[in-house]
Simulated assay, not measured.
Amino acid sequence: MKIVIADDHAVVRSGFMHILNFQKDMEVVATAADGLEAYDVVAKHQPDILLMDLSMPPGESGLIATGKIKENFPETKIVILTMYDDEEYLHHVMKNGASGYVLKNAPDEELLHAIRTVYQGGQYIQQSMANSFVTRLDNREQDGETDPYKILSKREIEILPLVAKGYGNKEIAEMLYVSVKTVEAHKAKLMEKLQLKSRPELVEYALRKKFLTF
Protein backbone atom coordinates (compact mmCIF):
# COMPACT_ATOMS: atom_id res chain seq x y z
CA MET A 1 0.00 0.00 0.00
CA LYS A 2 1.17 3.53 -0.81
CA ILE A 3 1.35 5.86 2.20
CA VAL A 4 1.85 9.61 2.70
CA ILE A 5 2.90 11.06 6.07
CA ALA A 6 1.87 14.62 7.00
CA ASP A 7 3.54 16.08 10.11
CA ASP A 8 5.25 19.41 10.77
CA HIS A 9 8.24 17.79 12.51
CA ALA A 10 10.88 16.32 10.18
CA VAL A 11 12.15 13.91 12.84
CA VAL A 12 8.63 12.51 13.30
CA ARG A 13 8.18 12.04 9.56
CA SER A 14 11.55 10.29 9.36
CA GLY A 15 10.80 8.01 12.30
CA PHE A 16 7.44 6.81 11.02
CA MET A 17 8.81 6.47 7.50
CA HIS A 18 11.46 4.08 8.82
CA ILE A 19 8.85 1.99 10.65
CA LEU A 20 6.47 1.77 7.70
CA ASN A 21 9.07 1.15 4.99
CA PHE A 22 10.36 -1.79 7.03
CA GLN A 23 6.99 -3.52 6.44
CA LYS A 24 6.76 -5.72 3.36
CA ASP A 25 3.27 -4.47 2.48
CA MET A 26 3.88 -0.72 2.99
CA GLU A 27 5.75 2.02 1.16
CA VAL A 28 5.95 5.72 2.08
CA VAL A 29 5.78 7.52 -1.27
CA ALA A 30 5.92 11.11 0.03
CA THR A 31 5.72 13.35 3.11
CA ALA A 32 4.23 16.78 3.86
CA ALA A 33 4.76 19.44 6.53
CA ASP A 34 1.23 20.90 6.72
CA GLY A 35 -2.30 20.46 5.44
CA LEU A 36 -1.84 22.44 2.24
CA GLU A 37 1.23 20.43 1.27
CA ALA A 38 -0.58 17.21 2.22
CA TYR A 39 -3.37 18.09 -0.20
CA ASP A 40 -0.89 18.67 -3.04
CA VAL A 41 1.04 15.48 -2.28
CA VAL A 42 -2.15 13.39 -2.17
CA ALA A 43 -3.25 14.92 -5.48
CA LYS A 44 0.08 13.93 -7.03
CA HIS A 45 0.56 10.42 -5.61
CA GLN A 46 -3.03 9.23 -4.97
CA PRO A 47 -1.91 7.18 -1.92
CA ASP A 48 -3.96 4.43 -0.32
CA ILE A 49 -3.34 5.84 3.18
CA LEU A 50 -2.61 9.33 4.51
CA LEU A 51 -1.19 9.54 8.04
CA MET A 52 -2.25 13.00 9.18
CA ASP A 53 -1.12 15.01 12.19
CA LEU A 54 -3.75 17.42 13.54
CA SER A 55 -1.73 20.44 14.63
CA MET A 56 0.79 21.69 12.06
CA PRO A 57 1.44 25.40 12.68
CA PRO A 58 1.87 27.75 10.93
CA GLY A 59 0.45 25.86 7.95
CA GLU A 60 -3.06 24.50 7.48
CA SER A 61 -4.11 22.15 10.25
CA GLY A 62 -5.06 18.53 9.85
CA LEU A 63 -8.58 19.31 11.06
CA ILE A 64 -9.25 21.47 8.01
CA ALA A 65 -7.20 19.44 5.54
CA THR A 66 -8.92 16.15 6.39
CA GLY A 67 -12.29 17.35 5.11
CA LYS A 68 -10.82 18.85 1.94
CA ILE A 69 -8.79 15.79 1.06
CA LYS A 70 -11.59 13.34 1.78
CA GLU A 71 -14.00 15.32 -0.38
CA ASN A 72 -11.69 15.50 -3.38
CA PHE A 73 -9.80 12.21 -2.99
CA PRO A 74 -12.29 9.80 -1.41
CA GLU A 75 -10.20 6.73 -2.30
CA THR A 76 -7.40 7.90 0.03
CA LYS A 77 -8.13 6.69 3.55
CA ILE A 78 -7.01 9.00 6.35
CA VAL A 79 -5.55 7.86 9.67
CA ILE A 80 -5.10 10.63 12.22
CA LEU A 81 -1.83 10.26 14.10
CA THR A 82 -1.67 12.78 16.93
CA MET A 83 -0.63 13.55 20.49
CA TYR A 84 -4.12 14.77 21.40
CA ASP A 85 -6.06 12.34 23.56
CA ASP A 86 -9.11 14.53 23.08
CA GLU A 87 -12.66 13.46 22.27
CA GLU A 88 -13.44 16.81 20.61
CA TYR A 89 -10.70 16.31 18.03
CA LEU A 90 -11.70 12.68 17.58
CA HIS A 91 -15.34 13.60 17.01
CA HIS A 92 -14.56 16.27 14.40
CA VAL A 93 -12.05 14.34 12.30
CA MET A 94 -14.11 11.16 12.21
CA LYS A 95 -17.12 13.19 11.08
CA ASN A 96 -14.92 14.90 8.49
CA GLY A 97 -13.97 11.63 6.86
CA ALA A 98 -11.04 10.15 8.78
CA SER A 99 -11.08 6.37 9.10
CA GLY A 100 -8.63 5.98 11.96
CA TYR A 101 -7.38 7.77 15.08
CA VAL A 102 -4.15 6.70 16.79
CA LEU A 103 -2.05 8.48 19.41
CA LYS A 104 1.63 9.04 18.70
CA ASN A 105 2.60 7.26 21.91
CA ALA A 106 0.83 4.07 20.80
CA PRO A 107 2.99 0.97 20.24
CA ASP A 108 4.24 0.48 16.68
CA GLU A 109 2.12 -2.68 16.43
CA GLU A 110 -1.06 -0.71 17.10
CA LEU A 111 -0.26 1.85 14.39
CA LEU A 112 0.46 -0.91 11.88
CA HIS A 113 -2.75 -2.69 12.84
CA ALA A 114 -4.71 0.57 12.42
CA ILE A 115 -3.27 1.16 8.95
CA ARG A 116 -4.03 -2.37 7.78
CA THR A 117 -7.55 -2.24 9.23
CA VAL A 118 -8.32 1.04 7.48
CA TYR A 119 -6.74 -0.13 4.23
CA GLN A 120 -9.07 -3.15 4.23
CA GLY A 121 -12.10 -0.87 4.55
CA GLY A 122 -12.59 -0.77 8.30
CA GLN A 123 -12.36 2.00 10.88
CA TYR A 124 -9.93 2.10 13.78
CA ILE A 125 -10.10 4.16 16.97
CA GLN A 126 -7.46 3.57 19.62
CA GLN A 127 -9.09 1.42 22.26
CA SER A 128 -8.38 3.86 25.09
CA MET A 129 -10.61 6.42 23.33
CA ALA A 130 -13.25 4.26 21.66
CA ASN A 131 -15.67 4.00 24.59
CA SER A 132 -15.54 7.71 25.43
CA PHE A 133 -16.13 8.54 21.75
CA VAL A 134 -19.38 6.56 21.63
CA THR A 135 -20.51 8.08 24.93
CA ARG A 136 -19.82 11.59 23.65
CA LEU A 137 -21.86 11.01 20.49
CA ASP A 138 -24.79 9.83 22.58
CA ASN A 139 -24.53 12.85 24.87
CA ARG A 140 -24.38 15.25 21.93
CA GLU A 141 -27.58 13.85 20.51
CA GLN A 142 -29.34 14.04 23.85
CA ASP A 143 -28.15 17.55 24.74
CA GLY A 144 -28.53 19.05 21.26
CA GLU A 145 -25.07 20.63 21.49
CA THR A 146 -24.23 23.05 18.65
CA ASP A 147 -21.49 21.66 16.45
CA PRO A 148 -19.64 24.27 14.37
CA TYR A 149 -18.93 21.66 11.71
CA LYS A 150 -22.68 21.38 11.11
CA ILE A 151 -23.51 25.07 10.83
CA LEU A 152 -20.35 26.68 9.39
CA SER A 153 -19.17 26.48 5.79
CA LYS A 154 -15.66 25.17 5.04
CA ARG A 155 -14.45 28.69 4.30
CA GLU A 156 -15.89 29.96 7.61
CA ILE A 157 -14.10 27.13 9.44
CA GLU A 158 -10.85 28.22 7.78
CA ILE A 159 -11.36 31.86 8.74
CA LEU A 160 -12.45 31.30 12.35
CA PRO A 161 -9.02 30.38 13.84
CA LEU A 162 -7.28 33.07 11.80
CA VAL A 163 -9.58 35.77 13.16
CA ALA A 164 -9.16 34.37 16.67
CA LYS A 165 -5.37 34.55 16.32
CA GLY A 166 -5.60 38.26 15.51
CA TYR A 167 -4.96 38.31 11.76
CA GLY A 168 -6.52 41.27 9.95
CA ASN A 169 -8.89 40.98 7.01
CA LYS A 170 -6.16 41.81 4.50
CA GLU A 171 -3.77 39.24 5.96
CA ILE A 172 -6.45 36.54 5.91
CA ALA A 173 -7.39 37.44 2.34
CA GLU A 174 -3.77 37.02 1.24
CA MET A 175 -3.42 33.70 3.08
CA LEU A 176 -6.59 32.24 1.53
CA TYR A 177 -6.24 33.90 -1.89
CA VAL A 178 -9.60 35.67 -1.70
CA SER A 179 -10.70 39.31 -1.60
CA VAL A 180 -10.93 41.38 1.57
CA LYS A 181 -14.67 41.78 0.99
CA THR A 182 -15.04 38.01 0.86
CA VAL A 183 -13.25 37.68 4.20
CA GLU A 184 -15.44 40.38 5.74
CA ALA A 185 -18.59 38.65 4.51
CA HIS A 186 -17.56 35.21 5.81
CA LYS A 187 -16.46 36.67 9.14
CA ALA A 188 -19.76 38.45 9.62
CA LYS A 189 -21.67 35.31 8.71
CA LEU A 190 -19.77 33.05 11.10
CA MET A 191 -20.21 35.54 13.95
CA GLU A 192 -23.94 35.58 13.21
CA LYS A 193 -24.21 31.80 13.04
CA LEU A 194 -22.30 31.33 16.31
CA GLN A 195 -24.17 34.23 17.95
CA LEU A 196 -20.92 35.95 18.92
CA LYS A 197 -20.55 39.73 19.20
CA SER A 198 -16.83 40.38 19.69
CA ARG A 199 -13.37 38.99 18.96
CA PRO A 200 -12.78 38.05 22.65
CA GLU A 201 -15.93 35.93 22.49
CA LEU A 202 -14.65 34.35 19.28
CA VAL A 203 -11.27 33.59 20.89
CA GLU A 204 -12.99 31.95 23.85
CA TYR A 205 -15.19 29.92 21.51
CA ALA A 206 -12.22 28.86 19.36
CA LEU A 207 -10.29 27.70 22.41
CA ARG A 208 -13.27 25.81 23.83
CA LYS A 209 -13.90 24.03 20.53
CA LYS A 210 -10.19 23.24 20.02
CA PHE A 211 -9.80 25.42 16.89
CA LEU A 212 -6.73 27.08 18.41
CA THR A 213 -3.44 25.39 19.29
CA PHE A 214 -0.38 27.18 20.65
Rank of each mutant, 00 (worst) to 15 (best):
I3F: 07
I3V: 06
D7V: 04
H9P: 09
V11G: 06
R13M: 10
L20Q: 02
V28Q: 03
V28G: 02
A30F: 08
T31A: 13
A33W: 05
D34S: 09
E37W: 09
D40P: 13
V42M: 07
A43I: 10
Q46K: 11
P47R: 03
D48Y: 11
D53T: 04
G62S: 08
L63D: 01
I64H: 01
I64V: 09
T66Y: 02
G67M: 03
K70G: 04
E71A: 13
I78A: 01
I80Y: 00
L81T: 00
M83D: 07
D86H: 11
L90N: 00
H92M: 13
M94T: 00
A98K: 02
A98W: 02
G100Q: 08
P107R: 09
L111A: 07
L112H: 06
H113A: 14
T117A: 13
V118G: 04
Q120K: 13
Q123F: 13
I125M: 05
Q126E: 08
M129A: 05
V134L: 15
V134W: 09
V134D: 09
T135Y: 15
D138G: 15
D138M: 15
N139T: 10
R140E: 13
E141G: 15
E141F: 15
G144A: 10
E145L: 14
T146G: 14
P148C: 08
P148H: 07
P148K: 02
K150H: 12
I151D: 03
I151H: 08
L152E: 03
K154I: 09
R155E: 09
R155H: 12
P161F: 01
K165A: 13
G166E: 05
E171G: 12
I172C: 05
A173R: 02
Y177A: 11
T182V: 10
T182R: 06
A185S: 11
L190E: 00
M191F: 08
K193D: 05
Q195E: 11
L196Q: 04
R199C: 12
P200N: 04
E204G: 13
Y205I: 06
A206M: 08
F214D: 12
